[in-house]
Amino acid sequence: MTEALYTRFMERIERGEKIEATDWMPDDYRMLLLRLIHMHAVSEIMGAYPEKEWVPQAPTLRRKLSLMAKVQDEIGHGQLLLRVAEDLAAPLGRDRNDLMNDVITGRVKFHNVFHMEAPTWADAGIIGWLVDGAAIITQTALLDCSYGPYARVLKRICAEESFHMQHGESIILALAEGTNEQREMLQEALNRWWEALLFFFGPPEVTDSARKMMEYRIRSRTNEELRQKFLNRYIPRIRAVGLTIPDPKLHYDEAAQRWVYTEPDWERLGRMVRENTGPKSQERIGLRRRAHTEQSWVREALVRARQRQAV
């Protein structure tokens, strides 16, 4: 029985059909998707923290408004993605509370870049320009995902990310056009973020689960392909605004048609994400814990109010 279902499922995948929440799917397809989308959702939410830190300190009212709009977008994207994850997790008996508790207990990872400090306004700019830029590349690569509910949500997310892209560029362009001090601040921020940006795309080797995700057409590009796309697109622009990329080894290998770079410290940064030991990991998880626990009475009150209405 299961074997026949599996064969039929794979035929559908190979025909390029979309799978829906109510369709039969192999357990590992569900688990791979759930892990990916759960981490994506949580990363959107944890990604709002380094940005929200800059809302009170943004240099102008316009910057403040646009940064707030971005924070709202990130939380909104988190909620859309949580809905997709919840429908995958429901047959396992897990709901939104469980998925959000996993952040507090460290059972779900979030992107390395959100464990780091954003000490200057230029860091806020680099996050908007390059961290969002890297995230846009990984997200657009998932637009053709075989899982329909995820593909649909990504369409909306990518449409909104196009504003994030312009917003980040606007901040760094203002700094690049500015005083020597502003340009220095921008360079220092780039120095802080470069290694983390390379790490963001994941290790170059194709892991078993990455291979499986390609077979299931959850994703179609390897980590290294996406990193190269990022480098192709951003290196010329980083140089155009007069910044130096902090990697003496960085060059384009014409014969191999690829960028050669100094590998990020996979071990150290990997441990930071696994164990939540980045400079800001615990502080931001603490904020999330506070939001989750201190407002649990609100959630309970809403349910109780509804129960009373229903009587």
Partner: peptide
Amino acid sequence: TQRPGAVQGDASLSQKPPVGYEV
């Protein structure tokens, strides 16, 4: 007919009590 939020069989995707958080 089938609810978009339900899988066939008893593993319903919306196994929530009638009043509470739901989709």
